[in-house]
Write a protein that binds this DNA or RNA. Sequence first.
DNA 1: GACCAGGCACATC
DNA 2: GATGTGCATGGT
Length: 221
Amino acid sequence: MSILMRIYDKLYAAFGPQHWWPGRTPFEIALGAILTQNTNWENVQKAINNLRDADCLTPDRLYEVPQMQLAQLLRPSGYFNVKTRRVMAFIGFLVKSYDGDIENMRPVSTSLLRKQLLDIHGIGPETADSILLYALDRPVFVIDTYTKRVLFRHNVLDFKCTYDEFQRLFYDTLPGDVALYNEYHALLVKTGKLYCKPKPLCYGNSSIIECPLLEMDSSGK
DNA sequence: GACCAGGCACATC
DNA sequence: GATGTGCATGGT
């Protein structure tokens, strides 16, 4: 069994299902993916609640709302000027390419969708992959800071490896299963929050193991 | 007051 | 290609 599958089994046994992504609709999930960039989820939820209270939680309404007003609604999520532009870019794409309905993306291939998402200003690999996996149910593995930290601290990959290199390891050693990818990423975030804070640990010391639930036995099995 | 939080674009070398 | 920096609120 691969190291990644063993880690998954340990995490699932320890924490159980995480019921991700926290969002009511695919569109809300996509918005959350943008708003949570480098940001605590509780702050994102406040911004999403603002949008809901202002009746702005649909592509049509967001397409109409003035930029200044949108920025104020997004304020609690931090980087609100940046995120306002990014949300507007995403909405513009959705309206222009998919008639303002994320459901119209369903028939399109995953590889094409990923290219289109990455072309949108403010959507990088993690945000694109989060939308693909959690909003559109595609077998795409999301790599985030916690994923890198947890794997690095278990000597699976170097922290300096690229996004694609981390992702490749998951594709090479796990089946392409949406439910598995969904749960695994959520479990890595859960574990990272509990055990893999950036300090006082040093990224340069790969021998440090700070995730006790993940420690393997001496035979490496 | 310091640190942290589910990135990304852009400038510079 | 690698490295550094700006973006910002809110909780601990």
